[in-house]
Amino acid sequence: MNNLKYFFAFIFTFSNIFQSCDVIEGPFTEEIIVEECAEKCKKILLEDYTGHKCGNCPRAAEKAEELKEIYGDQLIPIAIHAGFFASDFGGNFTTDFTSTAGNEWDAFFGNSAAGNPNGMVNRVGYPSSDHITQHSQWAQKVDELLQSDAQIYIEIEPEFNASSNSLTIETTTEILESISAPLSLNVILTESHIIAYQTDYDADPQEIADYEHNHVMRKSLTGSWGVDLGLSDYNNGDVISNTFSLNLNENWLAENMTAVAFVSNTNTYQVIQAQETYIME
């Protein structure tokens, strides 16, 4: 009798797990309706840490493109080639997509050490390991961040001189909501539509000769950690202007390049606002 009592208690307590199953019959996806970006809307920086010899990385790049399609201007993806899979130039993989700032970010945030591919969405979560997210988590993170309003607006005005291959970028940072923290402005260049080798474990053959690399971070104009915007407290209406110049590498194709600017909290590295524009009209 005693045995039976325990037996039934045991079954009763855990019988609920037999109901613990959700079967999705389809559709498996739902349509996301993203409101059109207002003039000074919030924009999200998505950093995809990748490498041309990383066989799983094309899945992350596809996810970035899928999200770009959905969120449009409100999402700014950049591909940062860094770590083991990006630094191996053996065989057909002769193109160097790495950059000084990208390597330093990777070493600092620990992305490639955690296993490519992965990324950061506005660098939220640092310094806990939560800042490194799998590509399957990006949509959720982007969606969460877009629920809040923009605190900053950034305007980028590039001026490219084709004859001298030189570029001048003027940025205007406007504070929309008071912020009590030091801020850093980062300006980088990205290039898309670069055709070069990429490993893809899902492809046959796995070395793809004509892979299109997009949003590749080429260079930072503001060092690895940006330039200080000069204050420790920022009030609504504050406007800060900056100018940066450089000569483009002759291998870069200006018509496929964008300037990406983002402002981050200097103490937490969290990105507060981002902006992107093509350097040629």
Binding site: C21, D22, I24, F28, E30, I32, D143
Partner: peptide
């Protein structure tokens, strides 16, 4: 399930 795109099973048996 916090994903805005996929309708994910929260309980997988």
């Amino acid at each position: 399930d916090l994903d805005p795109i996929y309708i994910l099973p929260e309980n997988v048996a």
